[in-house]
Every structure is written in C-alpha cells, then in structure tokens.
Design a protein around this nucleic acid. Structure first.
Length: 460
RNA sequence: UCCCCGGUAGCUCAAUCGGCAGAGCGGGUGGCUGUUAACCACUAGGUUCGCGGUUCAAGUCCGUGCCGGGGAGCCA
C-alpha cells in the first residue's frame, strides 16, 4: 500500500484503509490507548492516530516519543471528538527511528529563534520552520512562473568568477591550492599554479553576464546563489543568499521599475493565494500586522520619487535625523524607513540618484549629474530591490569606469557588448530572502534560510 | 568593523544592597481521563559562558576573551 500524505488525508472526503508515515509531534497516553499526532512535512497540520494498548502495539508505542519516525497502518475514520475531522485507527505500527526524549532538543513548547538556530539541522521539524520552507519553495516556483509568463528566459550565470571588481561587495576567494603550498609561492607563481591560471572567486552578482545574455535573448533572468564576504552582522545580510536578477533589452528605467513592482506584487499575491495555511501561522505567532502589510502592498501603486525629491521630503519633514540630509547625500536607513513606513506608508521606489553614490554601469542621465538607478524600499526590510538602466554608450561607460578607477582590460568582454549591437537595457536584483522576510514577517534573514551562512557561522 | 544590551537547570527566565541557587515548561516515576499546549502527585537535574582580579564572602563588582541579540555601516 502506498503511503498517504497528511495533506491529502486532511483534505479527503471519505475514510478507508490508510498508510501514513511521519514523525511524532506528540503522544498523549490514556488508560488503554494513546493518541499519536503525526506530521510528515506535507503541510502544517497533523493527523491524529489512535493506538490501542494491545499486546502487539504497546511495546512499539513505548518507543514512539516526540520526534520519532514511524508508519501507522489502519483505518481512516471520522473522529468522534472535537478538534479534528479525521483520525486513524491503528492496526499496525512500524518504528523507523526513535528519538530519545532525554536528549531530543525539540520539545512540545515554543522555542526561541536563537536556540533553534543552534539546531538548524532539526528546526525544519518545527511548525514555524516547516511553514517557512514550504513558503520558500512555493515562492521560488512563483518567481519562475512570473518570468515564464512574461517570456523571460531563465539563464544560469556562473558561480565561479574571475572578475574581481564588480563593485557589489567583497568577494570570497576560491582556490584549489593548499594554503601551505601557496605561502611559498610568489604572486606570479601562484597565479600560474591556480586552477584557472588566475585569481578566482564566488560571484557577487550575475548581472554582467545577464546583460550579455539579455543582449542576445531579449528578456532574461538569473535566480541563484550569491556570495558576499562583507563582515555584515545584521538581521538582513547573509554571506550566501539567493538573488533574482532580471535583465531586459530595449528597456528603460521606467520599465525596470514597472517590472520590479509587478514582480513584488505578483509574489505577494501568489503567497496569499497559495500559502494561506502556512501564512496564517505567521499572522498568529510572528507578526499580527502581516496581513495588513501584504494587502497594503497590493492596494495601491508604489510611490515613485526622484532622489532629489526624496531629499526635499526628508528636509521638509521637520524631523531631526541622526544623519542630516542634504542634496547629493545617500539615504540612510533611518531616511528609508521614514519614507516608506511613516511618510508614504507604502513601498517606495527612489530613482535617479546622484552618480557619485552609484555604480559605474548605471546609465548617466542627460543632466550629467544623476544616473538612472532605482531602489525599491519596503516597510521593515528596507531595500528589497536595487537596479538601474545600464549605460549602453561605449564612450560614456569607458569614461565612468575610468572615473571609478577601474581598469578596462578585465572588462573587455563587457565593453564588447557596447561595441557590437549595443542597445538600451535595464535590470535589477531582488533579494530572495528579503522577499521571504516581507512575506512571512520573519525578522531575521537567518530564519528564512535553512542553513544560513553569516560571519563566523558555518556549522551544518 | 563600531555602539548598546545580554550569557544562571535540556528550554524560557527569576535571584533585593555583594551574604545558603529558584520557578515554569521539558525529562523520569506513579495516577487519571476520547485526549488534543491534556490534567494531578512525586522526583532527578547546576563548572551561574571561559580566564584573571577585588573581597571575609562574587551569579551579582572590575578587566579580558568567546558567544548571542539590537542598532549603525556595507548591500540584495
């Protein structure tokens, strides 16, 4: 007999013979029989199983404590008691793996996020992390669905990269050489000995490669792991995270903002319609205002305002910020939060930043002072998306690189795309984990990644 | 990396002015009941994060290291 999933059992319309395999969430003993509550990860809910203290079943039942893995076979019947629609009358029991209650860390009680992080290998068995991981999976599929519907090609940007200076952040070095062997080598010898014959690292962004493919396939996107060796110790930074990076040929900044807004709204809408049960857990136990936040995002168009206008709003607010704002200054976290959480009470897209505070590849506007960049800010998270129209004019791009102090040789292939058939194009990066934080209300990025990598944390 | 806060039983926390180490939950044992965060009784459980110092006496005060959280910067 094939095993039934809890999800299907709970939704089934009729009883009958059933085989269920899962992990014991709790066991309640009565005189003569016990209740087992089983979860198999297919959904938030459990199925209650009724086990008689018969001569055959009792010895097996005693081995089934919270956390143990087992199979129950029996009859699915309507439950006579309140609390559940169905229950399984167990006729046969198999114990796959016991869980010693003296040492099994998960108890039938609420645990702190901090404690659960120390047992990241077991926390997916809790309601909260199970729900988060199901939503994470569903959101990843929704990303692909969103772009597929719009005719974007999913492309795989390399994870190993030789371009050292993409400007997005500190890069992890990758080498196949033994550290002891390297110590004895001169820089030139080392380069020759390296696997790639040159320094290599983990990608900090697939953007440059995505641009090449957008200039061939039209509309493309990458969705993959990204690595930053920044010593960032905050609830919204991780050393390894997943980023969604669309890139559109023949698109300008306005179309870029349109896409970002559509993507965020599309994903939020998808969560509301496809993850309702798991989302309800976060509404009850993590963030009471979550529903209002999510529906608020869908309610009205995002506010869009030029950077200079944002500065004026901040100056006119009468607020005394720790970092006073002035023309040309970058927005601090306190400013971003004020704009979207207090002033507009809405997601805000700030665009057309002073060129001095943005990357070299962003398209220089006609004013010569600003670039066609945009940041999408959302309540609580801050920057969810960062993007721009790219500089497609070879001369301007070369000049901007020189101004930024970047050597042009390593970028010969990037510049080639501006030499041959260059075209306007635009794209952005969306932090997948930050999106999950937005959708679930989870406050720390370490809790939306199964095995988070942050400074000094590489266990599991 | 900087600033602030914290580290006490398996977990969440308390411990007054520096004066005998405590509770709830979880675990174990027994009881009871179609139970459902079950309930009742009993019970075991401690290098108070490490190192050094002050003191008759340190969980408590001082120094230092490690770890965790919050804020900032960097950004997705």
């Amino acid at each position: 007999m094939r095993r039934s999933r809890v999800k299907d059992i709970l939704a089934s319309g009729q009883g009958g013979p059933v085989l269920l395999k899962g992990w014991v969430r709790t066991r309640r003993d009565s005189k003569g029989f016990s209740f087992l509550e089983l979860n198999d990860g297919s959904c938030l809910g459990n199925v209650q199983a009724l086990v008689d203290h018969s001569r055959e079943l009792s010895p097996l039942l005693e081995r089934l404590n919270t956390g143990a893995a087992c199979a129950v076979a029996g009859e699915l019947v309507a439950s006579p008691a309140a609390g559940q629609k169905w229950e399984v009358r167990v006729s046969a029991l198999t114990v796959y793996g016991e869980a010693d209650p003296e040492t099994y860390p998960l108890q039938k009680k609420r645990h702190s996020d901090e404690f659960l992080r120390t047992i990241a290998h077991l926390r997916p068995r809790t309601n909260k992390y199970g729900a988060m991981l199901r939503i994470r999976s569903e959101m990843a599929l929704a990303v692909h669905g969103f772009f597929r519907e719009r005719g974007f090609a999913h492309i795989h940007a390399p994870i190993l990269t030789g371009s050292d200076c993409e400007g997005a952040g500190e890069m992890f070095r990758v080498s196949s050489l033994e550290p002891e062997a390297v110590a004895a080598l001169s820089p030139v010898e080392r380069e020759a000995a390296e696997f790639f014959g040159r320094a290599a690292g983990l990608t900090v962004s697939g953007q440059l490669e995505a641009e090449m493919l957008a200039l061939a396939l039209g509309d493309v996107y990458t969705f993959g792991p990204t690595f930053r060796a920044e010593n960032s110790n905050t609830p919204k930074h991780a050393a390894e995270f997943w980023m969604v990076e669309p890139e559109m040929a023949f698109a300008d900044l306005a179309e870029d903002m349109d896409l970002a807004e559509a993507l965020v709204c599309g994903l939020v809408r998808h969560a509301l319609t496809h993850c309702a049960e798991d989302l309800a857990l976060f509404v009850s136990f993590v963030d009471k205002t979550l529903m209002a936040t999510l529906t608020g995002i869908l309610d009205k168009p995002f506010v869009r305002l030029p950077h200079a206008e944002a500065i004026r709003v901040l100056q006119a607010s009468g607020r005394s910020f720790e970092f006073p704002v002035h023309e040309g200054s970058d927005l601090q976290t306190e400013h971003e939060r004020f704009l979207c959480e207090e002033h507009f009470k809405s997601p805000v897209i700030v665009h057309d930043y002073p060129k001095e505070i943005k990357a070299f590849y962003m398209r220089l506007n006609d004013d010569g002072a600003t670039v066609a960049a945009m940041d999408l800010l959302v309540p609580r998270i801050g920057e969810l998306v960062g993007g721009s129209q790219r500089e497609e004019r070879l001369e301007v791009l070369s000049r901007r690189m020189a101004e930024a102090g970047l050597p042009s040789e390593p970028y010969w292939w990037y510049l080639d795309s501006r030499r041959y058939g260059s075209a306007p194009h635009a794209g952005f990066g969306l932090g997948f984990e930050r999106l999950l934080m937005l959708v679930t209300g989870i406050a720390n990025i370490r809790d939306v990644i199964p095995f988070p990598r942050t400074p000094r944390n590489l266990e599991f």
